[in-house]
Design a binder for these strands. Structure first.
Length: 751
DNA sequence: GAGCACTGC
C-alpha cells in the first residue's frame, strides 16, 4: 500500500544517524520523590539504530532483590522514606505460599508500613504493579491486630479486581473465601457478618454502605487502592473519608496508588494547618500523612520515540508493527489505539500488509480488543499464541487497566485515547480523541515488561512527551455530568455541595447545573435539601437520577414492571451485538421495532428473550448480546427489590404504552425536542435550549421523525445525535414538569 | 444512513 510506504520513506529519508541515549531512572515514582536519586544521569553512546526510532531513555523498573535509592525528604511535603529493613520472619502453615509472599517487594516494608499506619491517620503508599501492596497490606494489618473487633476494608475501582484479589488473599491465608476473607460487589456479597475480617469491595459499594453507616464504623482501616486512576467514585470516597476522619480520629486510611501525585494527595489529607489541636495528636497520632514508596516488580522496558511527529498514527502504527515483526525476536505485540473504528481499520491494514509482504504473513495473528466485542471474540486474545506465531493485539484503553494480557513484549502507543468531556453550559457529554497523560503512557509501557524485558514504541517525540504531555489526566470529576454524584452527597447529608472538599474540585458551573437538574426533577427543594419521599427514593436507586425519577413516576401510572425493564436495559451498555455489516442487525431490529420508539422496542426484545427461555441461541440469531441480557435480568431483579423496599407498587400496564411514555416523560422531560417545521432532513430542536439535534440512524424512529420526541442521551460527532428516542405528546411535558415548562412555548398548534 | 473509550452502584 502506497500510503503505508509513505511513513517509512519519509522517516528513513530524514534519519541519517540515530543515537541511543541511556539513562537510568525510575519511572515508577512520582517526580517529587525521585529528587534524591542523584545517580540519575544520561550519557550517550553512539550507536546506529536500524529502526526509525530513537531510544531516548531506558525506563528502569526496579527488580526484586536490587537495592533501591533511599532518601529522606521530610522538609515540607511530609515524605517519609524508610529504609528497607528485613522484617522478622514468621512461620505460617503454607510454606510455599509464604515464601512467595516474602519474595514480594512490599515484604521488606512490612514493619515500616505497620509503624506508619499505627502512628499516622493517613498513609500514602506508592507502589508499582506487582509490588504486592494490594494482597499483602491487608494481611499485615490483620496480623498486627487491626481486625480484632473491626474489619479491614480494601477498595478497588473494578469488580474483577475485587474478586481476584479476594480469592488470592483467601488462598494465601488458607481460609475459605467468604469467611475470614470476603468481598462485596454489586449483585454479589461474599461475606459473613460474623466471620469476615478482611473485606474487598468496589469503591462504589463502600459509598453505598455509607448511606446506612455514614461513619463506616465497622472498619478500623480503609485502604483505597488504585487512587491514581481518580475515578468519580474514588474521588468522592476520598472527600468523604477525609470528613469521616474528623469525626473518627482512630480510623486509619491507606491511599495506595501506582503513580499518584503523592504530595498533592498528602496535601489534600493535610489537616494540621486548619486545625492545630486535633484530638488525635494528643495521643501521639500524626494527622500529617506519611508517604511510603515501594518498588514494583516489572522488567526493564526500553522506550523508543519517533524522530519526527507522525501525521497519521494509524499508518505509523501499521508500519511499526510490521517493522517489529520483521526485526525483533519473538514476543507478542500490544497496540493502543482509540476506538473500534481505528482498531478494525488497523487490523485490516496489518493483515493486508502482511499478506502483501509475503514471508511475514506466516507468523502473525492480528486480533482486535474492545469492550463491544462478544465474549468469545474477547477470549481469543487470551488464548496463547501458537508455536512460532506472534500475536498482535490492537486494543482500546481496556488493556491499559481493565484487562491484563500475558506474553506482551512490545507495546505500540499511539499517544491517544477517547475521553469523556462534559460541557455544563450545553449539558452535553462528548467523547473525543485526546492526548493521553504521562501517567497513562507509563502504564501502557509497563504492559511490555510483565514476562521479560520489553520495548515500548511511542508514536510521538520525546520532546512532546517531556515538554507537552500533561503529567496526569484530568480527573473524571472534572469531565463529567455531576447529577449522580451530587445526589449521593445530598443523601449522605452533605448540605453545602459547593463547599465540599474534593481532591479535585469540579467547576462551579457543573455543580450548579447538577443542582438545577435535580431541582427540576423534584429531587431537591428550594433549600437544596432532598425532598421526601421522591428525593430519598431517587437517591436510593443505583441509577441515573432521571431514570430513577421515571421509575418513581411509573408507580402512580401503573407501569412499574415495564419501566423497570426499560431502566435495566438503558443502564447496560448495549443489548445489540455490534457488527461491521449492519444490514442484518437492522433487519433484526425491525422484528422488534415499535412505532412508539426505542423504549417500547426494548420491551419487545425483553419479552422475546423471556419467551425463548433466556436462550443464548435466540440472542445470537437476533443479533442480541446474550451477556448484556443476562445483566439486564440481574439489574432488573435488584431494581424490583429496591422498588419494593421503597414502597412502590410493582404493576404491569399490559399493553398500554401511553402510560409508559408518560412515565418516560416524567424522568426525561428536559430532553424534549420538536421537529423543525418544514425540515426536510429530520432536524429537531431541543425545547430547553433550541439546540439542533437529529435522531440517530440506529433508532427505530430514524426517518420516521415524529413531531415531538424525548431522547435518553446525545452522541455528538459531526452532528448531535439523539440515542434511544420515544415519541410523546407535548401536553405531557407541562403535566410532568409544570415549573420547568411554564415559560416555554409549547403550543403544538404552532406546527 | 452512522458509529458507542472505560468503569461503577
Amino acid at each position: 500500500m502506497a500510503t503505508i510506504h509513505w511513513f517509512k520513506r519519509c522517516v528513513v529519508s530524514e534519519v541519517t544517524q540515530v543515537f541511543f541515549f541511556f539513562g537510568c531512572y525510575q519511572t515508577c515514582l512520582p517526580e517529587s520523590i525521585i529528587i534524591g536519586t542523584k545517580s540519575f544521569s544520561r550519557h550517550s553512546s553512539l550507536t546506529v539504530d536500524r529502526q526509525y526510532f530513537r531510544s531516548a531513555a531506558m525506563a528502569q523498573f526496579w527488580k526484586p532483590g536490587t537495592e533501591k535509592p533511599r532518601l529522606l525528604d521530610d522538609e515540607e511535603g511530609g515524605v517519609l522514606f524508610y529504609s528497607a529493613s528485613p522484617s522478622s520472619s514468621h512461620t505460617y502453615g503454607y510454606a510455599s505460599l509464604e515464601k512467595q509472599r516474602q519474595r514480594l517487594p512490599v515484604f521488606k516494608y512490612r514493619t515500616s508500613i505497620l509503624y506508619l499506619v499505627e502512628t499516622h491517620s493517613t498513609t500514602i503508599i506508592v507502589g508499582e504493579t506487582g509490588s504486592g501492596k494490594t494482597t499483602q497490606i491487608p494481611q499485615y494489618l490483620k496480623e498486627a491486630g487491626w481486625a480484632d473487633g473491626h474489619i479491614i476494608a480494601c477498595t478497588q475501582p473494578r469488580r474483577l479486581a475485587v474478586q481476584s484479589v479476594a480469592a488470592r488473599v483467601a488462598e494465601e491465608m488458607g481460609v475459605k473465601l467468604g469467611e475470614e476473607v470476603g468481598y462485596t460487589i454489586r449483585f454479589e456479597d461474599v461475606t459473613n457478618s460474623d466471620l469476615t475480617r478482611i473485606k474487598f469491595l468496589t469503591d462504589g459499594v463502600l459509598l453505598r454502605e455509607m448511606m446506612d453507616d455514614p461513619l463506616l464504623s465497622k472498619y478500623s482501616v480503609i485502604m483505597v487502592d488504585e487512587a491514581h486512576e481518580r475515578s468519580l467514585s474514588t474521588d468522592i470516597l476520598l472527600g468523604l473519608l477525609k470528613k469521616i476522619q474528623r469525626r473518627r480520629p482512630e480510623l486509619r486510611l491507606i491511599i495506595a496508588s501506582a503513580t499518584i501525585e503523592a504530595k498533592s494527595m498528602a496535601a489534600f489529607f493535610q489537616t494540621r494547618k486548619r486545625r492545630p489541636q486535633l484530638e488525635g495528636e494528643d495521643r501521639g497520632l500524626q494527622t500529617e500523612p506519611a508517604i511510603l514508596s515501594v518498588e514494583g516488580r516489572g522488567y526493564n522496558v526500553q522506550i523508543l520515540y519517533v524522530e519526527e511527529p507522525v501525521s497519521d498514527y494509524l499508518r505509523a502504527t501499521v508500519s511499526t508493527v510490521m517493522s517489529i515483526h520483521d526485526n525483533e525476536p519473538m514476543g507478542d505485540i500490544l497496540v493502543f489505539l482509540t476506538g473500534q473504528d481505528d482498531i478494525d481499520t488497523a487490523v485490516q491494514l496489518i493483515t493486508e500488509e502482511a499478506q502483501n509482504s509475503g514471508k511475514s504473513s506466516l507468523g502473525m495473528i492480528v486480533l482486535p480488543l474492545y469492550s463491544g466485542l462478544t465474549r468469545a471474540d474477547q477470549d481469543l486474545v487470551f488464548s496463547p499464541s501458537p508455536r512460532g506465531k506472534r500475536k498482535v493485539v490492537i486494543s482500546t484503553n481496556i488493556a491499559e487497566t481493565s484487562l491484563t494480557l500475558e506474553g506482551i513484549v512490545y507495546v505500540v502507543d499511539s499517544g491517544f485515547s477517547k475521553q469523556r468531556f462534559y460541557n455544563p453550559i450545553t449539558d452535553i457529554e462528548n467523547l473525543v480523541v485526546a492526548p493521553i497523560s504521562k501517567a497513562s503512557a507509563r502504564q501502557r509501557a509497563g504492559r511490555a515488561g510483565r514476562i521479560r524485558p520489553g520495548k515500548c514504541y511511542r508514536l510521538y517525540t520525546e520532546d512532546y512527551f517531556v515538554n507537552e504531555m500533561s503529567s496526569h489526566g484530568i480527573p473524571e470529576m472534572q469531565r463529567s455530568n455531576l447529577v449522580s454524584s451530587v445526589i449521593q452527597l445530598k443523601a449522605l447529608g452533605i448540605d453545602n455541595i459547593l463547599g465540599f472538599d474534593w481532591p479535585a474540585s469540579p467547576s462551579s458551573e457543573s455543580m450548579v447545573r447538577a443542582l438545577e437538574v435535580l431541582y427540576s426533577l423534584g429531587v431537591l427543594d428550594d433549600d437544596a435539601k432532598l425532598t421526601s419521599p421522591v428525593g430519598f427514593q431517587v437517591a436510593e436507586l443505583p441509577l441515573d437520577p432521571m431514570i430513577s425519577k421515571m421509575i418513581i413516576a411509573s408507580d402512580q401510572l401503573g407501569c412499574s414492571e415495564e419501566i423497570i425493564t426499560v431502566s435495566a436495559i438503558l443502564s447496560v451498555q448495549s443489548i445489540w451485538i455490534s457488527v461491521k455489516g449492519q444490514r442484518e442487525l437492522d433487519g433484526a431490529k425491525l422484528r422488534f421495532a415499535a412505532a412508539e420508539g426505542d423504549h417500547v422496542t426494548f420491551l419487545n426484545v425483553y419479552k422475546g428473550f423471556l419467551q425463548s427461555n433466556k436462550s443464548s441461541k435466540w440472542c445470537h440469531k437476533n443479533f442480541i448480546n446474550y451477556h448484556a441480557m443476562k445483566k439486564v435480568i440481574e439489574v432488573r431483579e435488584q431494581l424490583r427489590r429496591i422498588a419494593q423496599r421503597l414502597g412502590l407498587a410493582l404493576k404491569s400496564c399490559e399493553n398500554d404504552m401511553q402510560v409508559l411514555r408518560k412515565a418516560v416523560t416524567a424522568g426525561f422531560f428536559a430532553n424534549a425536542c420538536r421537529l423543525e417545521p418544514y425540515s426536510h432532513n429530520g432536524m429537531y430542536k431541543t425545547i430547553r435550549s433550541s439546540q439542533e439535534v437529529y435522531i440517530h440512524p440506529s433508532s427505530v424512529l430514524f426517518r420516521v421523525n415524529p413531531k415531538w420526541v424525548i431522547y435518553n442521551s446525545l452522541v455528538s460527532t459531526d452532528r448531535q445525535y439523539m440515542r434511544n428516542v420515544i415519541s410523546i405528546d407535548p401536553s405531557w411535558l407541562r403535566e410532568a414538569a409544570p415549573h420547568f415548562y411554564q415559560q416555554q412555548p409549547l403550543n403544538a398548534n404552532r406546527l
